[in-house]
């Protein structure tokens, strides 16, 4: 199949799916009051801004925690390995919603912060919780990349007299960096999506405003269709960027998927 034909087919399929969605939306009981969403466009955009800010902060926290946890997991210390492993298992084994409750109700309360709590503090606690959550997944991505490096690279480095840490720093990690970019962008997309749960602790990000629209005006369809579309505005560019990076890496390292 030529590249041009492939693009044509892909475009047609996307159009067909959008048309199908439009038909489903037209079946909505009663009229959809899009104007109500449009009137709140400033709120929605402010909310989207907060979503981006919180997600960025969480990605930063997650990267730091994730890389540290991954280094713990490949270190030669059993104790550090177990610390990293426990972090990853606890975070990945519990729903983010439950973690958020724990952060907001239990941990913040234990630290006696609740009297001081306003929306700003809720956003900070939420970003920290989200970062800790994302860090566990990032840790596994980074560990996977480190372990994908051929054992011979370690042996060559060690046989030249490099220590474990030097081999990691100068030989193994630089080779991981390129391979890491696509999956890490994927984790960033996950974090953006999970940030919608912060609405339940009163963080005025974008889902919070959509829920308000639904609760006050009983306008469910407009609220949530716009919400989904606005998330896509953030996540789609990231996804497309990931795909481009993957294609570039694949071009250098492997052949593309053969559709036989």
């Amino acid at each position: 199949m030529t590249a041009q034909r492939e693009r044509l087919v892909r475009g047609a399929v996307v159009m067909a799916i959008i048309a199908a969605l439009a038909i489903v939306i037209s079946l909505a009981p009663g009229e959809i009051r899009w104007a109500l969403a449009w009137e709140r466009r400033d709120l929605f955009l402010t909310g989207l801004g907060l979503t981006v800010v919180i997600s960025s902060g969480a990605v930063g926290i997650g990267l730091i925690l994730g890389v540290i946890a991954a280094l713990f997991r490949v270190s030669r210390s059993v104790a550090l390995d177990q610390i990293g492993r426990t972090y990853v298992e606890v975070v990945r084994g519990t729903p983010f919603l439950v973690q958020l409750y724990l952060w907001y109700w239990c941990i913040a309360q234990a630290l006696q912060l609740h009297g001081l709590f306003g929306p700003r503090e809720a956003a900070i606690v939420g970003a920290i919780g989200l970062g800790v959550f994302g860090g566990a997944y990032i840790a596994e991505v980074v560990r996977g990349a480190i372990e994908s490096i051929d054992r011979g690279q370690w042996e060559a480095a060690r046989s030249l007299g490099l220590s474990h840490a030097q081999a990691l720093r100068h030989v193994v990690l630089p080779q991981c960096a390129r391979r890491l970019l696509p999956p890490l962008t994927g984790e960033a997309v996950s974090i953006v999506k999970e940030s919608s749960l912060l609405s339940i602790i009163g963080v005025a990000e974008i889902t919070y405003h959509a829920k308000n629209l639904q609760a006050r005006e009983y306008e469910t369809w407009a609220a949530f269709i716009c919400l989904a579309a606005l998330y896509l505005v953030v996540t789609l560019p990231l996804t497309l960027l990931t795909r481009r990076m993957e294609r570039r890496l694949a071009g250098e390292e492997a052949l593309p998927v053969a559709r036989l």
């Binding site: 011979g152 690279q153 042996e155 060559a156 480095a157 046989s159 030249l160 007299g161 030989v171 080779q175």
Partner: peptide, 18 residues
């Protein structure tokens, strides 16, 4: 590490740093 520095190794599969 200091002792390994004194003994070089050449592998079957080279293992150069790519």
């Amino acid at each position: 590490d200091a002792l390994r520095r004194r003994v070089g190794m050449v592998f079957q599969a080279f293992h150069l740093f790519p």
